[in-house]
Every structure is written in C-alpha cells, then in structure tokens.
C-alpha cells in the first residue's frame, strides 16, 4: 500500500509524516507524530474527544484523513498552553474540578476554546449547545459548563 508524504503545521511546528490514505488525521497525530492528547472515543464523529482545529475550523480529527491535512494548520490540546502558561480554560478546568477521568477533557478544551473564540460571552445554554458534540460520561457537564463560563468571564476581563 503506497503511503503519501504529508507536510503540515501542528501547534506552530512544521511536521511531516507518511500516511496511508486510509489513516485519519487522528491516527496520524497519535501514531506518527506522538501527539496522543487527542483521543479516540468513537471514530465516528459522535464523541468529540478527538477535536482539533484544522485551519481554524473545529473538526473531529477522526473524520479527516491524514492526507487531507497536506499544507494545513492543525492545533491540538498540546498547543493550548503557551510555554509554561496554561490557557485560562485549562486552569479553570482544574480549579472547578471539571474533569474526572479526563479522557474527554482534551477535546472539550479545544472545542471550548473554539466556542469562546466565536463567542466570548456565551450564555449557559450557548455553552451547552456549543459543547453538545463532546460527550462526557463522568461529570454530568455541570462543572464543565461552569468552568467554561468562568474562563470566558476571566478572558473578557483580561481584554
């Protein structure tokens, strides 16, 4: 099976890898680039644990082929913290105990960041619908929603 050479930018760094055309972007991130922060919970776009930004668009990386990332910019949970400084969402998730097992957390953080980029002052309902593509089975979402609202408030205050 012929593999395709792919070059892309991941979290600001140039990367290249050889992808089987059947491999998803998630497979490539995890298995070829060692970026295992993005998780596979379903492989069908129903759980959001693999959420990444692809050229600034929030996508499930399990629904993108690795070869489609040619020339693209990809941002994953590993790129959220700037140097040693956590993104406010990351900090608020810890503060609010918004994670239990933590498996859905990377995808939810990426999706929440995309949400706040679009809408810096969401209502509770907007947060809930904005994260409806991210399943969490541990928390009942309560503390996740609170953490996102609190992070949004802090980020608005910081501007």
């Amino acid at each position: 099976m012929t593999k395709t050479h792919v070059t892309a930018t991941v979290n600001g760094d140039p990367v290249e890898f050889l992808a089987d055309p059947r491999e998803t972007l998630l497979d490539c991130l995890r298995d070829h680039l060692g970026l295992t922060g993005s998780k596979e919970g379903c492989g069908t776009g129903d759980c959001g644990a693999c959420s990444v930004l692809l050229d600034d668009v929030l996508v499930c990386s399990c629904l993108v082929l690795g070869v489609e990332a040619q020339g693209a910019r990809v941002e994953t949970v590993e790129g959220m913290a700037q140097g040693g400084t956590l993104h406010p969402l990351q900090r608020k998730f810890i503060e609010h105990a918004a994670l239990q097992c933590g498996f859905c957390t990377p995808g939810i953080l990426v999706a929440a960041k995309a949400l706040l980029d679009r809408n810096p002052d969401p209502t509770e309902s907007e947060v809930r619908f904005g994260l409806a593509g991210n399943l969490c089975r541990c928390t009942g979402y309560d503390k996740i929603v609170r953490a996102v609202l609190d992070a949004a408030a802090e980020m608005r205050g910081a501007q």
Binding site: A111, A114, A132
Partner: peptide, 9 residues
C-alpha cells in the same frame, strides 16, 4: 447535522 465539529466539514 451533527455537532459543531461535524458542521466544520
């Protein structure tokens, strides 16, 4: 159709 993630594609 689907989630915001799916909407992106």
């Amino acid at each position: 159709v689907g989630s915001i993630q799916v909407q992106g594609r």
